[in-house]
Amino acid sequence: MDSNQKRKNESSKKPKVQVEDLHKSFNGKQVLKGVSFEVYSGETLAIIGPSGCGKSTILKLLCGLLQPDKGKVEMATDNIGLVFQGSALLNSLTVRQNLSLALRGHKLKRNEETKKIEEKLNLVGLKEQIDSYPSQLSGGQQKRTSFARAIVYDPEIILYDEPTTGLDPVMSTIIEDYMIELESKLHAASIVVTHQLSTWTRTADRAVLLHDGKIVWQGVPQEAMNSSDPFIKQFAHASREGPMEIG
């Protein structure tokens, strides 16, 4: 075994993201009641579950925007990218300035920076809008800009909150393809929160189903459709009958 291979094996043994017994409540309402999982580099974990079950909350706990009431969050690096559910672009800056701001701490030369920004904007099909302000973009274009911003500095851990929601099917596929490419190219550890079936079945290696503050099912996405587990059966088949009472 050569040393390179060995190092890779060792680093893949230690998870990039490790979460243990996570608890979080807002104003006395318990949202997370003990969630544990880990993600290794080169792997994508999908978090699925009904609206309001705490998926975005988990991502915010992971990148330190919220503090857990109880439990442990261990991130192997602080080079984290987050695609916000609501885009969260800086309104006073153009698309180019938004991406450039994300690269601020990374001390790149000016032409390198420009190259990186243009490359990522090309990828999400927004070359033309580079000097537009967020308010001049459509919702889907904002989402794609937010995606480009989160990945422009090649993060080692990437968190996607609904990266394909509101996009047309072709653009969804482009984004999904790129998520898969990033995973292998950067060897990043990724977590994707999504309601879109194609997104989690295509990009994720594993999925966890969150319900009532706990993980009620986990497994490989391909198994989800044929599983006999009542929770994932209900969720994957979008059925009203089942153990989850939603709303």
């Binding site: 990148c63 330190g64 969260a88 672009l89 309104n91 601020r104």
Partner: peptide, 17 residues
């Protein structure tokens, strides 16, 4: 406040700004 509720401030924090 608008930047706060539209998560722009959170975005800054994630970018270590």
């Amino acid at each position: 406040t608008t930047m706060m509720i539209t998560e722009q401030i959170d975005a800054l924090k994630v970018m270590r700004i």
